[in-house]
C-alpha cells in the first residue's frame, strides 16, 4: 500500500481530487471576505457540472462550453445576491433554495435535454484537455506529478495566485475586504457595499463554475446526478480553516484532496468495505474542523495564561 501512496501517480490523484474543491474554496473565500457566506456553492458546482456537459456537446468545444458554464455560474451568484441584498432573504435560506433546485433541476434538465436518467451517457460532451508544460515535466518526481494534469488543474493553481493578488493588491479587493469587515466604514467613504457584495458573489459563482465544469469534464467525462457530493460544503470548511485567504485555502484544499485520493487508493486495495471508504472525505472535514477549532481555542487560552 505504501508503495502506491508514495508514487507520483498518487500525488497526481491528489491534485486532481483537489481541483474542484480548490475552485470552490476560492469561491468561498471571496464571498466570505465581502461578508457573505456563499452556501450555494454546492448547487453551483452541480449546475455547472451539468451545463458543462450540455454546452460543450452543443458547441463541440470544451472552451466555449467552459465559458458559457462560467457565465451561468456568475448568473447564479447574481441571483443569490439579488435574493440576499435586494430582497433581504436570509443568506442561508436563499442558498438552501438554490442547492435544492440544483439537486432536482439538474436531473430534470438532463432528462429534458437528452432523455438520460441520472447519467449523461448519451451526450457527447467534450472534456478539457490535459496539459504538459515542457520544462516542468523534466523535473524528477514533481514533473511526473504535474505532467499531463488537466488544464483546469493548472488553472486552479493559477487562480490561487490571481485571487491573492486580486484581494490584497487591487482597489476592488481592498473594497471587498473593507466591506466584509466594516460595512459602515466602507459606506462612509462612498463605497457602495451592495455593489461590492454583488461583484463578490458573481466572482464567487464564476469560480465555483470552473470547479463544477471540471467534475464532469476533466475529473470524469460525464455528468451523474449529485456528482458534486458535498464538495461545495467541504469547500466552506476549507476556506474557513484557511482563514478565508487564497493561500490558506490552497493548503487546506490539498488536505481534503489527499483524503479523497486516499479513499480512491483504499478502494483499489479493498482493505475496507467500500461504504466506509466513501466516508473518508467527510470524516476528514469533521475531524479537520474539530482539530482546527480546538487548536484555535487552545491558542487563545494559552495566550490568556490559563
Amino acid at each position: 500500500m505504501w508503495k502506491a501512496i508514495l508514487s507520483p501517480d498518487f500525488f497526481g490523484t491528489i491534485l486532481r481530487a483537489t481541483t474542484p474543491i480548490l475552485f470552490a474554496t476560492l469561491a468561498s473565500c471571496v464571498a466570505s471576505k465581502s461578508g457573505i457566506t456563499n452556501m450555494a456553492l454546492e448547487g453551483i458546482l452541480l449546475f455547472s457540472a451539468l451545463f458543462g456537459v450540455i454546452f460543450s456537446s452543443i458547441t463541440h468545444s470544451w472552451l466555449l462550453g467552459l465559458i458559457i458554464t462560467v457565465v451561468i455560474g456568475g448568473l447564479i451568484g447574481l441571483i443569490l445576491a439579488f435574493f440576499v441584498l435586494n430582497l433581504k432573504t436570509d443568506e442561508i435560506l436563499a442558498a438552501i433554495a438554490i442547492n435544492l433546485t440544483a439537486t432536482g433541476g439538474t436531473v430534470l434538465l438532463l432528462l429534458a435535454f437528452s432523455g438520460d436518467r441520472g447519467v449523461s451517457s448519451s451526450i457527447r460532451s467534450v472534456s478539457a484537455p490535459s496539459l504538459t508544460i515542457p520544462l516542468i515535466d523534466k523535473i524528477p518526481f514533481i514533473g511526473q506529478v504535474l505532467s499531463g494534469q488537466n488544464i483546469l488543474t493548472w488553472l486552479s493553481l493559477v487562480a490561487v495566485i490571481v485571487m491573492h493578488l486580486f484581494l490584497y493588491k487591487t482597489p476592488l479587493g481592498l473594497s471587498i475586504r473593507a466591506v466584509g469587515e466594516n460595512k459602515n466604514a466602507a459606506e462612509s467613504v462612498g463605497i457602495s457595499s451592495r455593489r461590492i457584495q454583488y461583484i463578490a458573489l458573481v466572482i464567487s459563482g464564476c469560480l465555483a463554475a470552473f470547479g463544477g465544469f471540471f467534475l464532469s469534464g476533466g475529473y470524469m467525462n460525464m455528468f451523474t446526478k449529485d456528482m458534486s457530493s458535498g464538495r461545495g460544503f467541504i469547500a466552506l470548511a476549507a476556506a474557513s480553516m484557511g482563514g478565508n485567504t487564497p493561500i490558506g485555502g490552497l493548503l487546506v484544499s490539498l488536505l481534503f484532496g489527499l483524503a479523497s485520493a486516499l479513499a480512491n487508493v483504499m478502494q483499489l486495495m479493498s482493505v475496507m468495505p467500500y461504504e466506509i471508504i466513501l466516508m473518508v472525505p467527510y470524516l476528514t472535514t469533521l475531524i479537520g474542523l474539530g482539530v482546527y477549532y480546538y487548536a484555535q481555542k487552545k491558542k487563545k487560552e494559552r495566550l490568556s495564561g490559563k
Binding site: 466594516n182 466604514a185 466602507a186 467613504v189 463605497i191
Partner: peptide, 27 residues
C-alpha cells in the same frame, strides 16, 4: 461618533480606501 474604520487595515489603507492611487490594475 462611532469610527468608520476597518480595524485590520493600516492607517494608510483606511485613508485611501475607495480612492486608492493605482499602478495599472494594482494599488
Amino acid at each position: 461618533q462611532h469610527f468608520m474604520l476597518v480595524p485590520s487595515l493600516s492607517v494608510a489603507d483606511n485613508i485611501i480606501l475607495g480612492v486608492a492611487p493605482k499602478k495599472g490594475i494594482f494599488i
